[in-house]
Simulated scan of single mutants.
Amino acid sequence: MPALIDPAEFQGRRVVVTGGTKGTGRATVERFLAGGAQVLTAARNGAHGPEGAGLVEADLTTPEGSSRLAEAAMERLGGVDVLVHVLGGSTAPGGGFAALTDDVWRAELDLNLLSAVRLDRALLPQMIARGEGAVIHVSSIQRQLPLYDSTTAYAAAKAGLTTYSKALSKELGPKGVRVNVVSPGWIYTEASDALVNRIADSTGGTPEAARQSILDALGGIPLGRPARPEEVAELIAFLASERASAIHGAEHVIDGGTVPTV
């Protein structure tokens, strides 16, 4: 958590964060709470969110789950000022394109693209009606640097999310609603550990070898380390704040210099 946070920065702001019970999503919920916001998130399987945040039990990979969270946001908060889509990840097996069945593709698209599309469709009309709001979609540098052995479907879904976000920004900007994308590289989270273990299992190697294979595929991280969840959360909070009132329709990469091109 950053050392200096204005506890009134988001006072009176109503924030919905998806994927807010662990990893970067949890850090994002905590950052908005620290800034004085009312925060609502969702979880499935009885997970617990940060203390002080509202929690809805919903599977956002389904249309019904998205509707449940949107309805709860309107009932509990009376509206949404900031909508942050952090939910994402991959459970696809290693083994390249041939290992990706239709069911795997559907699951990756539901988790990484359609969950955002559905919730936007439910909650953005009330932002448009007020003429203000901020939307942040968390994509990934994998849209540019896919790991073909294990993240092809995830990377394609995130590429779709980034392109969708740009189209959305063109539509919503004139209506007072800002839309931006945050694209992290490797982050220290439980999900990154799970990816390492899946690669190790599929190759018969060690977790250390799998971790090195990811670094090799990415071309290394010039900064020397992955990002921490709270660092990504700080960028998200900045983009949602009035300090970023002229930033719109842009992708903001936080990857320690991993992407080698401008």
Rank of each mutant, 00 (worst) to 15 (best):
Phe32Met: 02
Lys22Gln: 15
Gly20Lys: 09
Leu4Lys: 14
Thr21Cys: 09
Gly36Cys: 03
Gly19Glu: 11
Asp6Cys: 05
Leu4Pro: 09
Ile5His: 12
Ala8Met: 13
Glu30Trp: 02
Glu9Cys: 12
Ile5Pro: 10
Ala27Tyr: 07
Gly19Arg: 06
Thr28His: 06
Ala8Arg: 15
Ala34His: 04
Asp6Met: 00
Arg13Ala: 02
Val15Arg: 08
Gly12Leu: 04
Gly23Thr: 03
Gly20Arg: 12
Glu9Ile: 12
Lys22Gly: 10
Thr24Tyr: 11
Ala34Met: 00
Gly35Met: 04
Thr28Gln: 05
Val17Leu: 05
Gly23Tyr: 00
Thr24Pro: 10
Thr21Pro: 04
Pro7Ile: 11
Ile5Arg: 15
Lys22Leu: 10
Glu30Pro: 13
Ile5Phe: 12
Lys22Ser: 15
Thr24Cys: 13
Arg13Gly: 02
Gly23Lys: 02
Phe32Glu: 07
Arg14Gln: 09
Gly12Lys: 00
Gly23Asn: 00
Arg14Val: 08
Gly12Ser: 09
Arg26Ile: 00
Gly20Trp: 10
Ala27Ser: 13
Thr21Tyr: 03
Val29Glu: 01
Gly25Asn: 06
Gly25Leu: 05
Thr28Glu: 10
Arg31Gln: 13
Val16Asn: 00
Leu33Asp: 02
Gly35Pro: 00
Val29His: 00
Phe10Ser: 07
Gly20Cys: 11
Phe32Val: 01
Gly25Lys: 02
Gly20Glu: 08
Gly35Arg: 13
Thr24Arg: 15
Thr21Ile: 06
